[in-house]
Amino acid sequence: MRQPQPTFEVDGAEIRHRRMQMGLEMTELAERVGISRRYLSHLENGTRTRMRPRRYAALCKQLDAHTEDLLAPQGIQPLKE
């Protein structure tokens, strides 16, 4: 049986923030990473939250980010009363 590929859950707001901070248009960043502008848009607005390792690594490289910098916050649960 085939195992699914691992994915990274990303923080779209952080991706957008870094892209804008670097002065990159969405189309330019998407081309550099090797993804479509639409896919990048979905990541930034939260419609899509997961990326495969190769594309995630390319995104981190283009945004000059460490591997953990673009990951979504994990484990934040509201307190139950």
Rank of each mutant, 00 (worst) to 15 (best):
Y56D: 04
M1S: 13
R37G: 11
G23L: 04
E31K: 12
Q74N: 06
R37I: 06
L63R: 04
R55G: 04
Q3T: 11
E9Q: 14
S36P: 12
R50D: 03
P6Y: 01
L29S: 05
Q77A: 15
M1A: 13
C60L: 05
L59K: 02
F8D: 04
Q3K: 14
G46N: 09
E81G: 13
L59H: 04
L70P: 10
G23V: 00
R32E: 03
V33A: 05
P78A: 15
E25L: 12
R18H: 08
E14Q: 11
E28C: 08
D69I: 07
R38E: 14
R52L: 11
Q21I: 08
D64V: 13
T7R: 07
R32F: 01
Y39M: 13
Q77W: 03
V33P: 00
L63V: 01
E25N: 12
M26P: 09
I15P: 00
P53N: 02
E44S: 07
Q74D: 06
P73F: 00
Y56L: 02
G75S: 08
D64G: 13
L70G: 12
R16C: 06
A72I: 01
E28W: 03
A72K: 15
A65W: 02
Q62F: 08
L59Y: 05
K61C: 11
T27K: 14
L70I: 01
P4S: 04
V10G: 01
R55M: 10
R19E: 01
Q21S: 10
V33H: 06
T49G: 12
L71Y: 03
D11E: 12
G23C: 04
L29V: 04
Y56Q: 04
P78S: 15
I15W: 02
L43E: 14
I15C: 04
Q77M: 09
Q5A: 13
K80H: 13
R16G: 06
G34K: 05
R52C: 02
G23A: 00
M26W: 01
R37S: 12
E68T: 06
F8T: 02
G75Q: 09
E28Q: 14
